[in-house]
Design a protein around this nucleic acid. Structure first.
Length: 137
DNA sequence: GCCAACGTTGGC
DNA sequence: GCCAACGTTGGC
């Protein structure tokens, strides 16, 4: 099972919105690399949800419930979306500052590629983040 | 509000 | 196919 991280503007679509709508369509991705990652997602994969903007922190955990399909929000059928369902909010959100301050995350895409909105997360990094959040699966 | 780090567009 | 100009994202 792979692990991922997706970014969202909380004013547009927050983790709380995902909690209230299980199986939400995660759409609107308009970047080729991010699309590649969306398409590589498998049912049951775990996904961290990160809030950009003022928050800049990982706030929740979700899972993939439907693999990639054509993004209905685009007039052109070239983009992809998946369906996600929230698992639980993190007990203690993990801030970008926390992640950046820890040398073990030096190679993490969250640190290295700030503009990438959908990215794979190494198992070790995922476990560390989960541990930092004080959250039990 | 600024700017670095991208991605995209269009002229050549 | 290259690259300058421009637009966007997201951190600071």
């Amino acid at each position: 099972m792979a692990r991922w991280l997706v970014k969202t503007e909380p004013e547009e679509f927050s983790f709380q919105t995902l909690v209230s709508k299980p199986g939400s369509c995660w759409d609107g991705v308009r970047n080729l690399e991010a699309r590649k990652h969306l398409r590589a997602m498998a049912k049951g994969d775990l996904v961290f949800v990160y809030h950009t903007g003022k928050e800049r922190r990982i706030v929740g955990l979700a899972k993939v419930v439907t693999t990639a399909y054509v993004d209905p929000s685009s007039p052109q059928p070239i983009w992809s979306a998946v369906d996600l369902t929230a698992i639980k909010a993190l007990s203690e959100p993990v801030t970008l500052a926390d992640v950046k301050a820890d040398a073990r995350f030096a190679q993490c895409l969250l640190v290295r590629r700030s503009r990438l909105s959908v990215m794979p997360i190494d198992d070790e990094h995922f476990d560390l983040m989960l541990q930092m959040s004080g959250t039990k699966l």
